[in-house]
Amino acid sequence: MGTILDQSLLDKWMTQITKKKNIFRAVMCIENQEQSLSLVSSGGEMEAEDRFFVASVTKLFVTTVLLNLRAEQRIDLGDPISKYLPQETIAGLHTMDNRDYTKEITVKQLMSNTSGIPDYFSQVVFADLAAGNDQAWDLDKILNAARQQKPPFKPGQRRKAQYSDTNYRLLGHIIENIKGESLQTVFKEYIFDRLNLKQTYFYQNPEDKSPVSFYYKQKRMELPLYMASIGAEGGIVSTAKELMIFLRSFFNGNLFPLSELEEIQKQWNFLWAPGPFFYGTGISRQPLSPFGLGRGLIGHWGQCGAFAFHHPESGLYFTGTVNQVLGQSSAATTMARVIRLYSREKKALRLQADTP
């Protein structure tokens, strides 16, 4: 389609983003369903091809692998996690009123953040990392931290959900136990190699300086030990273009049947933090206005400002990062701006085509 939404306009908007307070580098890739629109632009201290931490966008990759394992009949999402994790690993993770509910928690409840297992990534942990105290958080350490907190609700309680990175660290351990291989090896098999992603990988080597740094307010965050330890919680590195390849494949049935996509969106629970947004089964929904809570962007945010979203109504896809822990609103505002312009143009073209 002939469009006002072109490279020069996206370049202009990316420059505007990086002039906002505390946004020092950003990149955005935009495509439509037909791929007649395919743009990528960066701003500030960032090039379009730069690698960056996708953070919690990693959770979409975890969902992809789990759905593949289910298709192979190697896992059932309704199974208790005790089927795949040893008792000594999970004992006491969810204790309320002197009762341990951990054995009742299912794989699906981990994926949907309805397990009630506390999030180890508390304000205290965040403040410590933000202060520059870089340290690795292995599985034992995060589970011990989770055990020190009070669960917010019983597992699977109706309309109860709380975002918990602990859930996804457990899912990563489940995947490794089922496959008998490292997460990097498993993800290469099911996603990276299948999609021919050459710049996408799990960050495991603290000496790897290739991903660009992200920021918290004006502070440049250097956390190689932490980022190399978090795995399925948020350890993937990628580029805007390769993340787009993954995102399109996720929504177009190239990685798992489209019927699975419908299933993981059947039940949405509202989360206030780190949102506000809605969470399904291994996928999130970000409304773009208070008047469209049942619509919006489908995909996932990353804590450091990364994003991978599809907008079903317009058919647009968005990937990239603003590389700022508090920068999601800047990215969301730009995505909404693109959607409005693109939708107006499509409507104008339809009216033009219908006019004799």
Rank of each mutant, 00 (worst) to 15 (best):
T281L: 08
L255G: 00
P290V: 09
R220S: 13
G315V: 06
R285A: 04
P206D: 08
P257F: 10
I298Y: 02
W272H: 15
Y215T: 03
Q303G: 09
W272R: 14
P224D: 12
T239N: 07
W268C: 07
W301C: 03
V322M: 09
V212I: 15
K219G: 04
E207Q: 15
V237F: 07
N269C: 15
L247F: 04
L258E: 14
I264M: 14
Q328P: 03
I298C: 02
F307G: 00
K217T: 09
Q286I: 10
T319Y: 03
E260V: 07
G299D: 01
N254C: 14
F270C: 11
R285D: 03
E313W: 07
S210L: 14
P276E: 10
T281C: 14
Y226K: 08
L223P: 00
P211H: 08
K209F: 10
M244E: 03
Y216H: 14
K241M: 08
E313F: 08
H310E: 06
F277E: 00
T319Q: 02
Q218C: 06
R295E: 12
F246M: 06
I264E: 08
S289K: 11
R220F: 05
P290M: 10
E207T: 12
I283Q: 01
L258R: 15
E233M: 15
Q324V: 04
Q303E: 08
K266L: 14
P312G: 04
P312D: 07
K219V: 12
N323M: 09
G320C: 10
P287F: 06
L243V: 05
H311Y: 05
P274N: 07
I283S: 00
A273W: 13
T321Y: 05
Q328N: 13
V237G: 02
P276F: 11
L261I: 10
H300M: 07
N254L: 14
S284V: 09
P206G: 11
G275A: 15
W301Y: 10
I236M: 08
Y317T: 02
V237I: 15
N254W: 12
F270Y: 15
S238R: 01
R285M: 11
V212A: 13
A232D: 04
I236A: 03
L293T: 03
F250L: 10
G305D: 02
N254G: 15
L293H: 02
S284N: 06
K241H: 07
L293R: 07
P276G: 11
Q286G: 04
L247G: 01
L271G: 03
F256T: 01
T321K: 07
L243W: 01
Q267F: 12
Q265E: 13
E222Q: 14
Y279A: 08
E207V: 08
L258A: 14
N323Y: 04
R248M: 13
G234V: 01
E262W: 12
L225W: 12
L225Y: 14
A240D: 02
F250S: 03
G231I: 03
E222F: 10
P257C: 09
L223H: 05
G292H: 13
L261F: 13
Y226Q: 09
L258D: 10
L243M: 13
F214V: 01
S259M: 11
G282E: 00
F309M: 06
V325C: 03
N252W: 06
F278L: 11
I236G: 00
V322W: 01
K241Q: 13
F278N: 01
S284K: 05
P290F: 09
S238P: 05
G299N: 04
F250R: 01
F214G: 02
